[in-house]
Computed example of a mutant assay.
Amino acid sequence: MLVIELARAIPAAGLRQLRLFLAGVAESVEERRVGEFDLQVRVESLGVAGAGRGEGTRPMLVSVSGPGFGDEEVFDAEHADEVDQERFVGFTPTHAVDVIAFCGARFDHVVVALLTAGIMDAVGGVANAELHEDQLPLVAGLPGLLARRREPWEAAYGTGEFLRAWAATPGFRLVK
């Protein structure tokens, strides 16, 4: 799972761009409510290698949360124990996009990272990636890294470029 922190709600034009992007990378897309998408992502559409036979598509959920989109409780709960993110991302998030895989193979982690980067190209925002302590040095010199933090848990904040670079590193793996 990765989270995209947003400074404001996604405007209508951004939602159109998001829908177009998702339709381009998924075999099927179902929008259950405005901003919540069940997907079968075509792995090859993101340039991900390593999918075995029968693994050409992967189930994913993309969910916008925050005022006006639903899941306000989810947004509030996810941000209740967060530190003041303004010092790391330059704003206090009002909305977020969660990108969630329903599988856990190594390439699923890469698919989530690349899918998240593509979503950021469509809607903007800053990726908030929880890290294991030993991953902090691995992300230190990557392009697009905006900030790292150690407390209350390790995390990195970055651009789509950061996610693409990190996903290309040997042994890449997301925490959640």
Rank of each mutant, 00 (worst) to 15 (best):
P11Q: 06
F75E: 02
Q17P: 06
V74F: 11
A9N: 04
G141H: 09
G14M: 11
A7E: 14
R19Y: 07
L145I: 07
E78M: 14
S63Y: 05
P137R: 10
A113K: 01
P93E: 02
E30P: 07
E82P: 00
T92D: 07
Q135T: 11
F88Y: 13
T169K: 13
P152R: 06
H109Q: 06
S63E: 11
G66E: 04
L145C: 08
W166M: 11
E30K: 12
Q40G: 08
F69C: 04
G24T: 02
D121V: 06
R58F: 07
D98C: 14
A12P: 02
A26D: 06
V29P: 00
M1C: 07
L146I: 13
S28G: 08
G160F: 02
Q17N: 14
H132Q: 14
L46N: 01
G171Q: 12
L138G: 09
E73H: 14
T94C: 12
T94F: 11
P143H: 05
V29H: 04
A23C: 09
L39E: 01
D71E: 12
Y157G: 01
A26W: 02
P59M: 05
L146F: 08
G158H: 04
A13H: 09
L145D: 03
V74I: 10
R106V: 13
R87Y: 03
A49K: 15
G66D: 00
F75Y: 11
E130N: 11
V97M: 10
E151S: 09
H132A: 15
G68W: 05
T57P: 03
A167F: 04
N128Q: 10
Q40L: 14
L61D: 12
R87Q: 13
L20D: 14
V48K: 03
V83W: 09
L174K: 03
F88V: 03
F21R: 07
L146C: 09
K176A: 15
V175P: 00
E133Q: 13
D84I: 10
E72N: 09
T159G: 04
A51F: 15
G90L: 05
A105E: 15
F75A: 02
G144T: 11
G54W: 05
L22C: 05
E5S: 03
A49D: 03
L114D: 02
I10V: 14
I119H: 01
A117M: 05
E86A: 12
N128E: 10
F37L: 08
Q40S: 13
V99A: 01
D98P: 06
E151Q: 07
A156K: 03
T92N: 08
L46H: 02
Q135V: 10
A127I: 09
A105R: 07
V34C: 09
R8C: 01
G68C: 06
V62H: 01
N128I: 00
W153M: 12
V41A: 03
E30Q: 13
V62Q: 05
P143D: 05
F102E: 12
E130M: 13
D81T: 15
R149Y: 05
L142C: 05
G14P: 09
L174N: 04
R149N: 06
T57D: 07
Q17W: 08
E130Y: 13
G54T: 10
G125N: 04
L18T: 04
V175I: 05
A155Y: 00
D121F: 08
